[in-house]
Design a protein around this nucleic acid. Structure first.
Lengths: 192, 192
DNA sequence: GTTCGACTAGAACGAACGCTCTATCCAGGG
DNA sequence: CCCTGGATAGAGCGTTCGTTCTAGTCGAAC
């Protein structure tokens, strides 16, 4: 049955995504993935014959979608681009706090662990960052900011969100994210 | 002889620091550390009876010092605080490029992998971030920026540097760091 | 009713993991 | 000359790693 099929595959991907987010690539074992996804090793290698790397790449793409959705929701909450970005920091802070500071960026840890040594994963990471930048860029440009400025700002917004989320996770505090929201808003407003 | 003693210990710490920077905590084995530091397993456990975690914490403190020195050097290169920060991004970009995009922030990967699960390491990470913020804060405040503003800006400067370095590493390009330098300078200048 | 392919199931492989343990080395003090 | 204790050396512990492989289940197609 198709339903069961895609069900198992998706369960594996989602579980992998969550585990990579929380414990990274090297800290997550395939057997643990199978166990927590309630699948067997055979199933995992059936769906992902490329092994751990292929599975991780797919999980990164899943995390990409997840984060993209959140960005779109936050950015869509208001017309003002500066306020829209702070809405994103607020959402990130809430989600991070709610997960007891466990769920930071879904791909950062894996990205850092595999940079320069796992091309399949690296490409998924590169694409994810490009997607996120594009989403922010579109919002900023649509709010009247010149295209080049919007593109550059978008890159800095994403990078700063990454850094702030790391800081918030380590400090177990929403403050770094809220502060980042204020500073990014201030920076954006210098372009209008 | 004392020289030999401290020599071995320090060789182990430096090697661990470099390996954690490049492959993270979970991706680095104690036997690999011993091999590359030209020490034996016995020596490693002699100096670090707390095992891998104690060794990692010590390596984090070493990376803390390393990064602190670089911050001080970059920030000291000019009086203007905005220019001083871009000097740091320039130094980071050069170092990252020179290492073939391998040597990013010395502690980020390990910090993310162990957050919430290895208190000894977490504390070393927390202290490192605090040191770095303090260094930047002192520079900004010394340049005439109000204390509260300087403190907040310092936090954002460090967080943004972290995010930009990650982006530069993934993209194998100095551009994210240079761009961040420009944006941080712009943000800082709004406070004067 | 049989054949087939997608999927499940888990035993087994060699290698590596963190760590413990005993043995040895060797300089300085008695 | 022996003794002591910091430092070195590495075999070996039990466990887990990623992966491979064979066997079995089961619905659909002919």
């Amino acid at each position: 049955m198709k339903t069961t099929t895609t069900g198992t595959r998706e369960r594996i991907v989602r579980t992998t995504s969550r585990l990579l987010q929380r414990q990274g690539f090297e800290g997550t074992g395939i057997k643990q993935i199978a166990r927590e996804a309630e699948a067997t090793l055979g199933s995992v290698y059936h769906f992902f014959p490329g092994g751990k790397q292929e599975l991780a790449a797919e999980a990164i793409r899943h995390g990409d979608q997840e984060f993209s959705d959140m960005l779109r929701e936050g950015l869509g909450s208001t017309d003002d681009p500066a306020e829209a970005v702070t809405a994103c920091t607020r959402m990130l802070a809430e989600a991070l706090h709610a997960s007891d500071w466990q769920d930071g960026c879904p791909i950062t840890t894996t990205a850092l662990e595999t940079v320069g040594r796992a091309p399949v994963i690296e490409q998924a990471v590169t694409e994810a960052f490009a997607h996120w930048r594009a989403i922010v860029e579109e919002k900023l440009h649509g709010s009247g900011i010149a295209l080049t400025d919007a593109r550059e700002l978008a890159a800095t917004v994403i990078n700063t969100l990454e850094g702030a989320e790391l800081a918030a996770q380590v400090a177990r505090s929403e403050e770094p994210l809220h502060l980042t929201g204020r500073h990014l808003a201030r920076l954006i407003n210098t372009y209008r």
